[in-house]
């Protein structure tokens, strides 16, 4: 049997798949940067989070639920697993007893919108497009790189390695379990807690 977890160079010439992956990556990156730039205006901060999260989530409309890793099968188990993945994301902060800023309630709701939108865009749509083009290794690496690039305008450089590592962890889960529910839950919980 052909090993699955490798980049498939023979697919590099698949132009439709490449165009689809490049298009999703460009859209996800553009929406993320646009959201961050809009949020720099205080009067647009809340709206940019909600609208930006919704726009990122809309990238998933071009894919089936199965391609995105969304399924109602074993939903309870996936939700519980999401809490466990959230605990993994929070462990470094919990171990050092360093709380992050407390989000005001409107921003907590907005944080959920952005978290769901980012997961659908990066680990859902972009992962699926890259997986269909070059395979899962490229999907994990590529979606994590674009996810990190999406945060260069909002994060100091020192934070980007942690963002990239979180992207790799969530994308690896997405590949290993073929599941996006747990990354969504984990991302939401981590954003609310930090």
């Amino acid at each position: 049997m052909q090993p699955r977890f490798r980049i498939r160079p023979e697919r590099l010439t698949d132009r439709p798949a490449a165009a689809r992956a490049a298009g999703v990556a460009a859209l996800a990156l553009g929406l993320e940067w646009g959201r961050v730039l809009a949020a720099r205006r205080p009067e647009l901060a809340l709206a940019s989070l909600v609208v930006g999260g919704a726009a990122l989530g809309a990238l998933g409309l071009g894919f089936s639920a199965r391609e995105l890793g969304l399924s109602r099968s074993q939903l309870g188990l996936r939700l519980v697993s999401g809490v466990a993945v959230a605990a993994v994301l929070l462990l470094p902060a919990l171990a050092r007893e360093r709380p992050g800023p407390l989000l005001p309630p409107p921003f907590a709701v907005a944080a959920i919108a952005v978290s769901v939108g980012e997961e659908i865009a990066f680990r859902g749509a972009l992962f699926a497009a890259l997986d269909a083009w070059l395979g899962p290794a490229a999907a994990i690496v590529g979606s994590s790189l674009v996810f990190t690039a999406g945060h260069v305008l909002s994060h100091p450089p020192a934070f980007l390695l942690a963002v990239a590592a979180a992207g790799v962890l969530l994308a690896t889960w997405r590949w290993a379990c073929r599941d996006l529910v747990a990354p969504i839950v984990a991302h939401c919980v981590a954003d609310l807690a930090l």
Binding site: P92, H187, D191, L194
Partner: peptide, 12 residues
Amino acid sequence: AWLVTPGFFDGF
């Protein structure tokens, strides 16, 4: 994540 506080820190 140990290199920065509080670790993974997204969007805000």
